[in-house]
């Protein structure tokens, strides 16, 4: 099963359960608060929550993305070492 079919299956199952609850297709009585106030806006809540999570995740990881100037400095030293050594061995740089 590809990732796309996995995702489609999950969305299909969850969507069916949601619609069944929303339109009261099942012989289940939910508390009126859930039925009248939570269910109608649940998809929007999921969407906004996922968006907020995504932005938070990316923002956090951009913030903690480490800069490594020491790796650059080390490389510069090694590049000039390498170039000197290679020149002494007759490579035209």
């Amino acid at each position: 099963m590809t990732r796309a079919t996995e995702a489609a299956t999950a969305i299909g199952i969850l969507g069916t359960i949601y619609l069944a609850l929303l339109f009261q297709w099942l012989p289940i009585t939910l508390p009126p608060t859930i039925q009248e106030f939570i269910l109608p806006v649940l998809p929007w809540w999921v969407l906004v929550t996922f968006g907020a999570y995504s932005l938070g995740n990316i923002g956090y990881h951009v913030m903690t993305f480490r800069d490594c100037p020491e790796a650059y400095d080390e490389l510069q030293v090694q590049i000039s070492q390498a170039q000197n050594d290679l020149r002494s061995k007759g490579i035209g740089l």
Binding site: R3, I58, F65, R66, D67, P69
Partner: peptide, 29 residues
């Protein structure tokens, strides 16, 4: 992206693109 890893010479734009692309890929795949 993990542990003591890191980058040099990337501006904020490049970091955001890289992180965003990686997040998108990790969610989808």
């Amino acid at each position: 992206y993990a542990g003591n890893g890191g980058v040099y010479g990337w501006d904020l734009r490049r970091k955001v693109i890289s992180r965003g692309a990686n997040f998108l890929a990790s969610v989808l795949l």
